[in-house]
Amino acid sequence: MSIRFEKVDHLYSPNTPFAFQALTDVSLELSEGKITAVIGATGSGKTTLVQHLNGLLLPSSGSVIVGEQTIKAGEKLKNTKQLRKEVGLVFQFAEYQLFEETVLKDVAFGPQNFGVDELTATETAKAALKTVGISEEDYEKSPLELSGGQKRRVAIAGILAMQPKVLVLDEPTAGLDPQGAKSMMDLFRRLNREQKITVIIVTHNMEHVLEYCDEVVILEKGRLIFHDSAREFFEHPQFMERARIDAPNIIRFREMCRQKGLELSPDILTVQQLAREIAKRRKKR
Protein backbone atom coordinates (compact mmCIF):
# COMPACT_ATOMS: atom_id res chain seq x y z
CA MET A 1 0.00 0.00 0.00
CA SER A 2 1.37 3.36 -0.97
CA ILE A 3 1.36 6.13 1.60
CA ARG A 4 1.64 9.75 0.62
CA PHE A 5 1.43 13.03 2.51
CA GLU A 6 0.69 16.11 0.44
CA LYS A 7 1.32 19.47 2.07
CA VAL A 8 -0.12 18.32 5.37
CA ASP A 9 -0.62 20.76 8.24
CA HIS A 10 -2.01 19.70 11.56
CA LEU A 11 -3.41 22.13 14.09
CA TYR A 12 -4.42 20.94 17.57
CA SER A 13 -7.42 22.66 19.22
CA PRO A 14 -7.95 25.18 16.43
CA ASN A 15 -9.71 28.47 17.29
CA THR A 16 -8.89 28.28 20.99
CA PRO A 17 -6.16 29.88 23.06
CA PHE A 18 -4.59 26.40 23.13
CA ALA A 19 -4.20 26.12 19.36
CA PHE A 20 -0.91 24.51 18.42
CA GLN A 21 0.48 23.76 14.98
CA ALA A 22 2.12 20.35 15.30
CA LEU A 23 2.78 19.68 11.60
CA THR A 24 3.68 22.21 8.93
CA ASP A 25 3.68 21.55 5.20
CA VAL A 26 4.72 17.91 5.33
CA SER A 27 5.00 16.23 1.92
CA LEU A 28 6.30 12.70 1.96
CA GLU A 29 6.02 9.35 0.22
CA LEU A 30 6.70 6.26 2.31
CA SER A 31 8.09 3.26 0.46
CA GLU A 32 6.12 0.04 0.30
CA GLY A 33 7.60 -3.08 1.84
CA LYS A 34 10.37 -1.22 3.68
CA ILE A 35 11.13 -0.48 7.31
CA THR A 36 11.07 3.27 7.83
CA ALA A 37 12.25 5.03 10.96
CA VAL A 38 10.61 8.29 12.05
CA ILE A 39 12.94 10.25 14.29
CA GLY A 40 13.12 13.71 15.84
CA ALA A 41 13.30 15.40 19.22
CA THR A 42 10.44 15.04 21.71
CA GLY A 43 7.56 17.25 20.62
CA SER A 44 8.70 17.38 17.00
CA GLY A 45 5.42 15.84 15.80
CA LYS A 46 6.26 12.16 15.28
CA THR A 47 3.18 10.86 17.05
CA THR A 48 1.02 13.42 15.30
CA LEU A 49 2.41 12.31 11.95
CA VAL A 50 1.79 8.59 12.43
CA GLN A 51 -1.71 9.12 13.80
CA HIS A 52 -2.67 10.48 10.40
CA LEU A 53 -1.93 7.11 8.84
CA ASN A 54 -5.07 5.39 10.10
CA GLY A 55 -7.29 8.44 10.28
CA LEU A 56 -7.13 8.98 14.04
CA LEU A 57 -6.11 12.52 13.24
CA LEU A 58 -7.26 14.32 10.13
CA PRO A 59 -5.11 16.90 8.36
CA SER A 60 -6.01 20.55 8.97
CA SER A 61 -4.96 21.21 5.41
CA GLY A 62 -3.49 19.08 2.64
CA SER A 63 -4.21 15.40 2.19
CA VAL A 64 -2.98 11.96 3.19
CA ILE A 65 -3.32 9.18 0.62
CA VAL A 66 -3.21 5.64 1.96
CA GLY A 67 -3.69 2.98 -0.72
CA GLU A 68 -7.06 3.63 -2.33
CA GLN A 69 -8.18 6.13 0.26
CA THR A 70 -7.64 9.85 0.23
CA ILE A 71 -7.99 11.67 3.53
CA LYS A 72 -8.53 15.30 2.67
CA ALA A 73 -8.63 18.24 5.05
CA GLY A 74 -12.21 19.20 5.91
CA GLU A 75 -13.74 15.98 4.59
CA LYS A 76 -15.18 13.13 6.62
CA LEU A 77 -13.45 9.78 6.44
CA LYS A 78 -15.47 7.42 4.27
CA ASN A 79 -14.23 3.97 5.06
CA THR A 80 -12.72 4.33 8.51
CA LYS A 81 -12.92 0.65 9.46
CA GLN A 82 -11.18 -0.53 6.30
CA LEU A 83 -8.38 1.99 6.88
CA ARG A 84 -7.93 1.04 10.53
CA LYS A 85 -7.75 -2.62 9.58
CA GLU A 86 -5.19 -2.13 6.83
CA VAL A 87 -2.96 0.22 8.81
CA GLY A 88 -2.32 -1.29 12.25
CA LEU A 89 -1.19 1.37 14.71
CA VAL A 90 0.52 0.33 17.93
CA PHE A 91 0.50 3.13 20.48
CA GLN A 92 3.34 4.16 22.72
CA PHE A 93 3.07 2.14 25.97
CA ALA A 94 0.48 0.01 24.22
CA GLU A 95 0.26 -2.28 27.25
CA TYR A 96 -2.16 0.24 28.82
CA GLN A 97 -4.87 -0.68 26.31
CA LEU A 98 -5.33 -4.29 27.49
CA PHE A 99 -8.71 -4.78 29.14
CA GLU A 100 -10.10 -8.30 28.61
CA GLU A 101 -10.03 -11.04 31.23
CA THR A 102 -7.61 -13.21 29.30
CA VAL A 103 -4.71 -12.61 26.98
CA LEU A 104 -6.31 -14.61 24.19
CA LYS A 105 -9.63 -12.74 24.41
CA ASP A 106 -7.85 -9.42 24.31
CA VAL A 107 -5.93 -10.29 21.17
CA ALA A 108 -9.11 -11.63 19.51
CA PHE A 109 -10.89 -8.34 20.28
CA GLY A 110 -9.43 -6.52 17.28
CA PRO A 111 -10.47 -8.91 14.51
CA GLN A 112 -13.94 -9.25 16.05
CA ASN A 113 -14.40 -5.51 15.73
CA PHE A 114 -13.87 -5.95 12.03
CA GLY A 115 -16.64 -8.50 11.75
CA VAL A 116 -14.67 -11.75 12.02
CA ASP A 117 -16.56 -14.46 13.94
CA GLU A 118 -15.32 -15.51 17.35
CA LEU A 119 -13.87 -18.86 16.28
CA THR A 120 -11.82 -17.46 13.39
CA ALA A 121 -10.75 -14.50 15.54
CA THR A 122 -9.46 -16.89 18.21
CA GLU A 123 -7.47 -18.78 15.58
CA THR A 124 -5.86 -15.58 14.22
CA ALA A 125 -5.23 -14.45 17.80
CA LYS A 126 -3.38 -17.68 18.56
CA ALA A 127 -1.26 -17.28 15.44
CA ALA A 128 -0.46 -13.65 16.33
CA LEU A 129 0.50 -14.59 19.89
CA LYS A 130 2.78 -17.27 18.53
CA THR A 131 4.41 -14.75 16.19
CA VAL A 132 5.21 -12.35 19.03
CA GLY A 133 6.50 -15.18 21.20
CA ILE A 134 3.88 -15.54 23.93
CA SER A 135 3.75 -19.15 25.07
CA GLU A 136 0.53 -21.14 25.15
CA GLU A 137 0.36 -21.43 28.94
CA ASP A 138 -0.11 -17.64 29.13
CA TYR A 139 -3.17 -17.57 26.85
CA GLU A 140 -5.68 -17.91 29.65
CA LYS A 141 -3.89 -15.60 32.10
CA SER A 142 -5.11 -12.10 32.87
CA PRO A 143 -3.04 -9.53 30.95
CA LEU A 144 -2.36 -7.81 34.29
CA GLU A 145 -0.37 -10.82 35.49
CA LEU A 146 2.24 -10.55 32.75
CA SER A 147 5.51 -8.62 32.86
CA GLY A 148 5.80 -5.23 31.17
CA GLY A 149 7.57 -6.58 28.11
CA GLN A 150 5.10 -9.45 27.72
CA LYS A 151 2.15 -7.08 28.02
CA ARG A 152 3.55 -5.01 25.20
CA ARG A 153 3.96 -8.12 23.06
CA VAL A 154 0.34 -9.02 23.72
CA ALA A 155 -0.71 -5.50 22.69
CA ILE A 156 1.28 -5.83 19.46
CA ALA A 157 -0.30 -9.23 18.85
CA GLY A 158 -3.67 -7.50 19.27
CA ILE A 159 -2.83 -5.34 16.26
CA LEU A 160 -1.21 -8.16 14.24
CA ALA A 161 -4.34 -10.25 14.64
CA MET A 162 -6.12 -7.67 12.48
CA GLN A 163 -3.73 -8.72 9.70
CA PRO A 164 -2.71 -5.21 8.65
CA LYS A 165 -0.73 -4.48 5.50
CA VAL A 166 1.09 -1.62 7.18
CA LEU A 167 2.31 -1.79 10.77
CA VAL A 168 2.97 1.52 12.50
CA LEU A 169 4.70 1.49 15.89
CA ASP A 170 5.06 4.53 18.15
CA GLU A 171 8.22 4.08 20.23
CA PRO A 172 7.69 0.33 20.62
CA THR A 173 10.90 -0.28 22.55
CA ALA A 174 10.65 2.63 25.02
CA GLY A 175 11.19 1.38 28.55
CA LEU A 176 12.24 -2.15 27.57
CA ASP A 177 15.55 -3.71 28.58
CA PRO A 178 18.14 -3.85 25.75
CA GLN A 179 17.62 -7.59 25.21
CA GLY A 180 13.84 -7.23 25.06
CA ALA A 181 14.15 -4.26 22.74
CA LYS A 182 16.41 -6.16 20.39
CA SER A 183 14.13 -9.17 20.14
CA MET A 184 11.22 -6.77 19.56
CA MET A 185 13.12 -5.23 16.64
CA ASP A 186 13.93 -8.73 15.33
CA LEU A 187 10.21 -9.43 15.37
CA PHE A 188 9.46 -6.38 13.23
CA ARG A 189 12.13 -7.37 10.75
CA ARG A 190 10.70 -10.88 10.55
CA LEU A 191 7.21 -9.49 9.90
CA ASN A 192 8.62 -7.22 7.23
CA ARG A 193 10.58 -9.95 5.44
CA GLU A 194 8.26 -12.93 5.82
CA GLN A 195 4.82 -11.31 5.62
CA LYS A 196 5.84 -8.36 3.43
CA ILE A 197 4.34 -5.92 5.91
CA THR A 198 5.40 -2.28 5.50
CA VAL A 199 6.79 -1.21 8.88
CA ILE A 200 6.99 2.36 10.18
CA ILE A 201 8.72 2.83 13.53
CA VAL A 202 8.97 5.94 15.66
CA THR A 203 12.19 5.59 17.63
CA HIS A 204 14.99 7.38 19.45
CA ASN A 205 17.40 4.47 19.22
CA MET A 206 19.97 5.02 16.46
CA GLU A 207 21.52 1.60 16.94
CA HIS A 208 18.15 0.17 15.94
CA VAL A 209 17.87 2.53 12.97
CA LEU A 210 21.31 1.48 11.82
CA GLU A 211 20.71 -2.22 12.17
CA TYR A 212 17.09 -2.60 11.10
CA CYS A 213 15.76 0.34 9.10
CA ASP A 214 15.88 0.98 5.35
CA GLU A 215 14.74 4.58 5.34
CA VAL A 216 14.78 7.52 7.72
CA VAL A 217 12.34 10.41 8.12
CA ILE A 218 13.42 13.29 10.36
CA LEU A 219 11.02 15.83 11.82
CA GLU A 220 12.04 19.09 13.41
CA LYS A 221 9.42 21.33 15.03
CA GLY A 222 6.71 19.82 12.85
CA ARG A 223 8.60 20.15 9.59
CA LEU A 224 10.12 17.40 7.50
CA ILE A 225 13.86 18.04 7.25
CA PHE A 226 15.13 14.73 5.85
CA HIS A 227 13.78 11.69 4.04
CA ASP A 228 16.20 9.28 2.43
CA SER A 229 17.81 5.86 2.88
CA ALA A 230 19.31 4.99 6.24
CA ARG A 231 22.67 4.64 4.56
CA GLU A 232 22.49 8.22 3.28
CA PHE A 233 21.40 9.34 6.75
CA PHE A 234 24.44 7.88 8.47
CA GLU A 235 26.72 9.41 5.84
CA HIS A 236 25.52 12.87 6.92
CA PRO A 237 26.29 13.32 10.60
CA GLN A 238 25.03 16.91 10.52
CA PHE A 239 21.43 15.63 10.60
CA MET A 240 22.12 13.63 13.73
CA GLU A 241 23.65 16.71 15.28
CA ARG A 242 20.67 18.80 14.27
CA ALA A 243 18.27 16.33 15.82
CA ARG A 244 20.55 16.20 18.90
CA ILE A 245 21.12 12.49 18.48
CA ASP A 246 24.28 10.60 19.35
CA ALA A 247 25.58 8.59 16.41
CA PRO A 248 25.73 4.81 16.95
CA ASN A 249 29.06 3.44 18.12
CA ILE A 250 29.81 1.75 14.79
CA ILE A 251 29.32 5.02 12.90
CA ARG A 252 31.54 6.89 15.32
CA PHE A 253 34.16 4.19 15.03
CA ARG A 254 33.98 4.44 11.24
CA GLU A 255 34.39 8.21 11.39
CA MET A 256 37.40 7.85 13.64
CA CYS A 257 38.96 5.31 11.24
CA ARG A 258 38.31 7.63 8.32
CA GLN A 259 40.06 10.50 10.07
CA LYS A 260 43.07 8.21 10.57
CA GLY A 261 43.00 7.32 6.89
CA LEU A 262 41.26 3.96 7.04
CA GLU A 263 38.11 3.70 4.87
CA LEU A 264 35.49 1.21 6.02
CA SER A 265 32.52 0.27 3.83
CA PRO A 266 29.17 1.86 4.81
CA ASP A 267 27.66 -1.63 4.55
CA ILE A 268 29.20 -2.56 7.88
CA LEU A 269 26.37 -2.23 10.35
CA THR A 270 27.09 -4.64 13.20
CA VAL A 271 29.99 -5.39 15.48
CA GLN A 272 30.23 -8.88 13.97
CA GLN A 273 30.60 -7.49 10.45
CA LEU A 274 33.19 -5.02 11.71
CA ALA A 275 35.21 -7.74 13.42
CA ARG A 276 35.12 -9.85 10.25
CA GLU A 277 36.25 -6.91 8.11
CA ILE A 278 39.15 -6.12 10.41
CA ALA A 279 40.21 -9.77 10.48
CA LYS A 280 40.08 -9.86 6.68
CA ARG A 281 42.22 -6.76 6.34
CA ARG A 282 44.79 -8.09 8.79
CA LYS A 283 45.08 -11.28 6.76
CA LYS A 284 45.65 -9.28 3.58
CA ARG A 285 48.52 -7.39 5.17
Partner: peptide
Protein backbone atom coordinates in the same frame (compact mmCIF):
# COMPACT_ATOMS: atom_id res chain seq x y z
CA UNK B 1 -8.33 10.36 24.85
CA UNK B 2 -5.21 8.27 24.35
CA UNK B 3 -7.02 5.06 25.26
CA UNK B 4 -10.00 5.94 23.05
CA UNK B 5 -7.60 6.45 20.16
CA UNK B 6 -5.71 3.24 20.92
CA UNK B 7 -8.96 1.25 20.97
CA UNK B 8 -10.20 3.04 17.85
CA UNK B 9 -7.05 1.72 16.18
CA UNK B 10 -8.31 -1.75 17.08
CA UNK B 11 -11.59 -1.03 15.35
CA UNK B 12 -13.66 0.09 18.35
CA UNK B 13 -16.50 2.34 17.31
Amino acid sequence: ERIIKAQASRGVD
